[in-house]
Design a protein around this nucleic acid. Structure first.
Length: 720
DNA sequence: ATAGGGTTAG
């Protein structure tokens, strides 16, 4: 009789659902189900039917239905303990935590499944605190946790950093014999120790688990690769194969990260083969991991080949490609990939945006970067620290530290990275006081400065001529036992050297355990500024002992001889360089106009389609600058030639060409140019005057810093 | 009836 009714019910339900799918809206379909439940609830008793009905409620997310079933269960004398856990589980699956909690609180006797379901729900929704509270309540109520409880709750411990309590529960798992016997408990433990950064203990747990499976071993591999113990990760993977445990896409993903970190292309390709052999070749996660691995190993073509085989790349796949291309210096391609992604209507996330922004800031692509800024806003990432730092970096590298600051001030959370980025932006642009102010705020917030902070602060002092402040900071960093690297020393050597305190600068180098070429070259360029030929010769001899024929040193020395008029020495140096087949890095400037980049090389305009117009504009600008007092500084010419030829050479320095081009194209607003070397004294004084002539700000990024030319003066205070 | 691992970033 009952069975018949149940069968009838199913048929009834089928009738309704087919009816619903054909002609009804989803709401009316659920309405039909309510009617159905109402009818059914009148006379039902079997466990089987209750389960079926609960399933219907879960599918229809119907709390009303649940309540009806509850009444019916009570009426029919269904064991309260069982019905309770069933109802709690069903309410949680309907997303009704409030009702579940209400049921839970009303129970006199609670089945362990009830506890487990609630804990699992909290874990699933990352409500770790409540999960742990529930677990504690369970213990105080003398309910002994089982394998289900433990395999869930460990995640909450690691999430909240409750290591002590976690170890106590681990002990419980050992006493109950679950650590060894239940692989779920074992993997949860491994995962937990991994999250605590304790890979050694994770491995000890793994070794004790009797029947090891993929998840267990993968959890350990993940731990190794996230901690940078990449060799261990690869070893664990190999031993997994030895134990005949079949890896899956999760396993491949983590071991491939380690291969990428190790640049272990041999194992990387081996795993690629394994992926094909075990049928994971068209699993998106595996494809993405392979793509990333190839990019980390700088095999851009291989990664593109993998990408082409992917039918539907997702957000992560696209992002991985974009960030990898940027890391390999293929910014242009990265940005075109980004545009393709947007065209395919794949939503970007903060990873995507910060990668694309880094592509822009590497090349100081202002317009492109601004467009990405509007995408950042469109998708609601204005307050995000990752996208935000990307924007700060972009604006900093485009010479707009005020815009960088606007972004910084909207961030919802200030952390060491965003602070460092902002301080560095100020430093590059010569806003020393602003940088120091932010640094003080950082200390006030209780954040410990790291090596990037130290470099940014020193650079800020250096670029603003704050020598005393810089020295004071340096001393305090030394006292605070902050690790100082060669870069930090190089910054100080530059600062002291440029201030003419060459002896102190040299002393500082002797303090360094392993002085590198950069340090010596820095001191050498200070010699060049102050025309200290003898000291420079002394240093050059020293450097050439460590690094015979060092290109940078020879060029600096040759330029020093040239600027002091020692032309025979210049010829000598040049012949040495020629013999060693060294070529000077040609000076280049570039400028972005209408999202197109135009590159200029000194004296080289013949190939430009508008050379005539550019030269005419340039002549006008030089004439007007001369009217306001510009005089050529011929010490900036490093070749021995006739005076008029020197003038001509000066007039065609790449930055002058780039500025003339921008003026001719009538670029609106500021003029923003970039240069691969440092700007020379002659161009510097010329650009100052031109900024007044055309009454516009000219921002020039050279290889070391920014110069903001406005109304006849420069932000660097003629100190660079 | 209730349970475990991964991919992209400054």
């Amino acid at each position: 009789m009952r069975r018949e009714y149940n069968g009838g019910l199913i048929a009834f339900s089928r009738f309704f659902s087919s009816f619903a799918s054909k002609s009804c809206s989803p709401e009316s379909s659920i309405h039909c189900q309510f009617r159905l439940l109402y009818v059914a609830c009148e006379s039902l008793t079997t466990t089987h039917t209750f389960s079926w009905l609960l399933r219907q409620c879960i599918d229809g997310r119907s709390i009303t239905g649940l309540k009806k079933i509850q009444t019916q269960m009570l009426k029919s004398g269904f064991p309260v303990e069982i019905s309770g856990s069933k109802l709690v589980d069903a309410s949680l699956k309907c997303g009704e935590i409030g009702y579940a909690r209400q049921l839970f609180d009303g129970m006199r006797e609670r089945h362990i499944v009830t506890w487990n379901s609630l804990i699992a729900y909290f874990i699933k929704h990352r409500r770790s605190k409540e999960a742990v509270e529930m677990y504690r309540l369970m213990i105080t109520n003398n309910v002994l946790p089982d394998e289900y409880t433990l395999s869930s709750v460990f995640k909450a411990f690691s999430d909240l950093g409750l290591e002590k309590e976690a170890r106590r529960s681990h002990g419980l798992a050992v006493i109950l014999g679950l650590e060894v016997a239940n692989v779920f408990v074992g993997s949860a433990l491994v995962d937990m120790y991994v999250k605590f950064g304790k890979t050694r203990e994770a491995k000890l747990v793994l070794d004790r688990v009797e029947e090891k499976d993929v998840v267990l071993i993968t959890a350990l591999i993940v731990g190794y690769s996230q901690k940078g113990e990449d060799t261990e990760a690869v070893k664990a993977f190999q031993s997994m194969l030895g134990e005949k445990v079949q890896p899956n896409e999760y396993t491949f993903a983590s071991v491939l990260i380690s291969c990428g970190n190790l640049k272990d292309i041999g194992n990387g390709k081996l795993i690629h083969g394994l992926i094909i052999k075990s049928g994971f070749e068209s699993v998106l996660a595996s494809q993405t991991s392979l793509l990333t691995m190839y990019l980390r190993c700088s095999l851009v073509d291989d990664s593109l080949r993998v990408f082409k085989c992917i039918e539907y790349p997702n957000q992560v796949t696209w992002t991985s490609l974009i960030s990898g291309l940027v890391q390999n210096g293929r910014e242009e391609m990265a940005l075109s990939v980004f545009r393709n992604m947007m065209r395919d209507s794949i939503k970007p996330n903060s990873f995507t945006l910060s990668s694309a922004l880094r592509g822009c800031s590497n090349l100081a692509m202002f317009e492109e970067g601004r467009q990405i800024h509007s995408i950042v806003s469109k998708y609601g990432f204005d307050k995000d620290k990752y996208a935000g730092s990307g924007l700060i970096d972009l604006y900093g590298k485009c010479g707009c530290s005020d815009m960088a600051r606007l972004v910084f001030d909207t961030l919802s959370e200030v952390d060491i990275i965003s602070l460092n980025t902002m301080i560095y932006s100020y430093a590059q642009n010569g806003f020393g006081h602003e940088a120091i102010e932010l640094f003080e705020r950082m200390i006030h917030l209780g954040l410990r400065p790291n090596d990037v902070t130290v470099l940014s602060v020193l650079l800020a002092c250096n670029n603003s001529g704050l020598v005393e402040e810089g020295c004071a900071f340096f001393d305090s960093f030394r006292k605070d036992k902050i690790m100082l690297t060669n870069d930090h020393y190089a910054c100080m050597v530059d600062m002291l050297g440029r201030a003419g305190r060459l002896e102190e600068a040299e002393m500082l180098i002797t303090e360094v355990i392993n002085p590198d070429l950069v340090l010596w070259r820095t001191l050498l360029s200070a010699c060049k500024i102050h025309r200290k030929v003898e000291l420079a010769e002394h240093i050059t001899r020293k450097v050439l002992e460590i690094a015979p024929g060092d290109e940078g040193t020879l060029i600096l020395m040759s330029n020093l001889y040239a600027s002091t008029g020692k032309w025979n020495k210049v010829i000598e140096m040049k012949s040495v360089m020629k013999e060693m087949r060294l070529k000077k890095n040609p000076a280049m400037s570039w400028v972005e106009v209408d999202r197109e980049t135009h590159t200029f090389m000194a004296g080289d305009l013949f190939l430009h389609p508008n050379s005539k117009e550019i030269l005419e504009t340039l002549e006008d600008l030089i004439r007007m600058a001369k009217d306001l007092g510009y005089v050529e500084d011929k010490s900036c010419v490093f070749q021995d030639m006739e005076e008029t030829a020197k003038e001509r050479a000066l007039h065609q320095h790449s930055e002058k060409l780039a500025i003339a081009f921008s003026v001719w194209r009538n670029v609106g607003g500021n003029i923003r140019i970039l240069k691969n070397l440092r700007v020379c004294v002659d161009c510097h004084s010329w650009i100052k005057i031109v900024s007044r002539v055309i009454n516009r700000e000219i921002i020039c990024r050279d290889s070391k810093r920014f110069h903001h030319f406005r109304d006849g003066s420069c932000s660097c205070g003629d100190y660079w």
